[in-house]
Amino acid sequence: MLCQKCHKRVANIQFTQVINNNKIVIYLCDQCAKDEGKFSIGSPLSINDFFSGIMGVPYMASVHQQSDLVCNTCNTSYEEFKKTGKIGCADCYKVYGEKLLPLLKRLHGNVQYNGKIPEKIYSQVKVSREISKLKEQLELCIKNEQYEKAATIRDQIKNMEIKKHD
């Protein structure tokens, strides 16, 4: 598709603006998008707008006050996070839960941690990682109707879960 402004270059930016619930979509090339930024949007996108952008919230849209998730520890609401892009405390990650997954997937392409584990909780985390691996195997066995093997894995998981809680 060609740029809707210069009609010369290929459009590679989709520019969406929402004003009073009217959605306007314009397709622009790099150059025109840059120029456009100077003239009609006013200030360039800030990091916060960028965040609300990648979370699927049009950055100029008014904030809907519906059932909002609020973290009890630090009082940060999910709506507030959407605007600032900043998480208030470690507990927020639990409170917002699955709502964060699409964002993390977009940022990192992956949502399962694989890196370094703190020494103090190393063995505990190691066991959890093994359990989740076994669970995947278990599902596969059931899918393939290998029930005997599935039973062995199920017992293994049980044992490891006991070990984890010790």
Binding site: L104, L107, H108, G109, N110, Q112, N114, K116
Partner: peptide, 8 residues
């Protein structure tokens, strides 16, 4: 850019 999913 990526900090989650890959090891250090």
């Amino acid at each position: 850019q990526v900090t989650l999913g890959q090891t250090e």
